[in-house]
């Protein structure tokens, strides 16, 4: 089953990138994707037990999460814009380093949490070390709001135990 997944994942970018649909190019794509899928399917999907329904539900949740994240990014940019354009910038800035523990366990969800923290208002991830996240916050208000609603959202999508 995992060979089928990785074959689809590899073959779709081939079609998009080559852009030719005559039998020679599509056949070459099928052969190459089959070989690579046979050799390296273990690398792509580390957790074997997840069923197809689980994966589809994760995908739907992730698309919804992307939509929410995009709105947060727009807010973050307005925040940076306001701070950068204010004439009394030095009074507005209060940089600080904050450290907190996360309760997420999977590597994938930690990665998504770190990237989301970077893209949301006023905070940037400096280092991820095991369960500890080191965050640099731009203003005082941003430092108080950590880790916020993001962690529970990610936990709802990716950390459901079967």
């Amino acid at each position: 089953m995992k060979y089928l997944y990785s074959f689809i994942v590899l073959f779709a970018p081939w079609l998009v990138l080559s852009g030719k649909f005559d039998p020679l190019h599509v056949g070459m794509g099928i052969v190459c994707s089959l070989l690579v899928a046979y050799w390296s399917a273990d690398l792509l999907f580390p957790d074997r037990e997840a069923t197809l329904a689980d994966r589809l539900r994760q995908l739907a949740g992730f698309i919804g999460y992307i939509g929410w994240l995009f709105w947060e990014i727009i807010l973050a940019n307005l925040h940076v814009f306001r701070v950068a354009l204010s004439p009394r910038m030095n009074e507005l800035l209060a940089p600080s380093l904050v450290e907190f523990d996360t309760k997420l366990e999977k590597e994938l969800s930690k990665f998504i949490l770190a990237n989301s923290i970077t893209l949301t208002p006023g905070t940037v991830t400096v280092r991820v070390n095991g369960n500890k996240f080191l965050i640099h916050a731009l203003t005082k208000k941003a430092a108080d709001g950590l880790p916020g609603a993001m962690e529970t959202r990610i936990a709802n999508i990716f950390e459901i135990t079967r």
Partner: peptide, 16 residues
């Protein structure tokens, strides 16, 4: 003023 806060501007505004 410093490297860390420049990173804020670069990381967010660049992506969006």
């Amino acid at each position: 003023p410093d490297f860390y806060s420049r990173m804020h501007a670069a990381g967010k505004g660049d992506t969006l």
